[in-house]
């Protein structure tokens, strides 16, 4: 058995050297995590994930909560936005194309000046121009999945029905 033991020990030694080199000598670079659901073309698979993403974007990347505060800041509070939406897109000053809550919220995010809640416009424009940047623009740069997630989140905090379809289900495209 001597020669077998020696050949086996030699082989294990070689494998050990390679392993040692790869594990301890070269720099331990950990590849980045896969991009979060929002950044990739895929997206959240369940309503819960969609809402979680929406909340994350709302408070983080979207920077919505900077202005939309409860105690009357520069922008209207949003905790009943989905319920108030119907009154908005039926209002006389409304110039957009939305016909339901979801499309109204989508429009408000992407094209904020389509309808400005009275009192919140840029001063001197008679509430025709919104101070809010469109969320697709570079400073915020949300993609479609993220926008839909935010809409779902808004519907959820308003206590309204969530009508947003999950990405990949085909609706809303």
């Amino acid at each position: 058995m001597g020669r077998f033991a020696r050949a086996a020990a030699f082989s294990l030694f070689i494998i050990g050297l390679y392993t040692f080199y790869s594990v301890f000598v070269i720099p331990p670079i950990n590849p980045g995590e896969p991009p979060s659901e929002s950044a990739a073309s895929g997206g959240p698979a369940t309503i819960e994930e969609l809402l979680a993403l929406g909340e994350e974007v709302y408070n983080g990347k979207g920077a919505c909560s900077l202005c939309h505060t409860r105690d009357g800041g520069r922008a209207p509070a949003l905790d009943d936005s989905a319920l108030a939406a119907k009154a908005r897109f039926s209002a006389p000053g409304y110039s957009g194309k939305a016909a339901d809550v979801e499309s109204y919220l989508y429009e408000s995010l992407v094209d904020p000046s389509a309808y400005v809640v009275p009192g919140y416009g840029v001063s001197g424009t008679d509430d025709r121009v919104s101070p809010m940047p469109g969320v697709r623009e570079s400073s915020i740069g949300l993609n479609d999945t993220e926008i839909r997630a935010v809409i779902a989140y808004l519907q959820s905090i308003s206590g309204a029905e969530i009508t947003v379809a999950l990405p990949g289900e085909g609706a809303g495209e």
């Binding site: 331990p28 670079i29 895929g42 698979a45």
Partner: peptide, 21 residues
């Protein structure tokens, strides 16, 4: 087609070396 499993992340070289060994 995205890998959506819990193990979608790319393992490090060190981990791979141990598996290969």
């Amino acid at each position: 087609m995205k890998d959506a499993s819990a193990e979608a992340f790319t393992p490090s070289i060190a981990y791979a070396a141990k598996v290969v060994s």
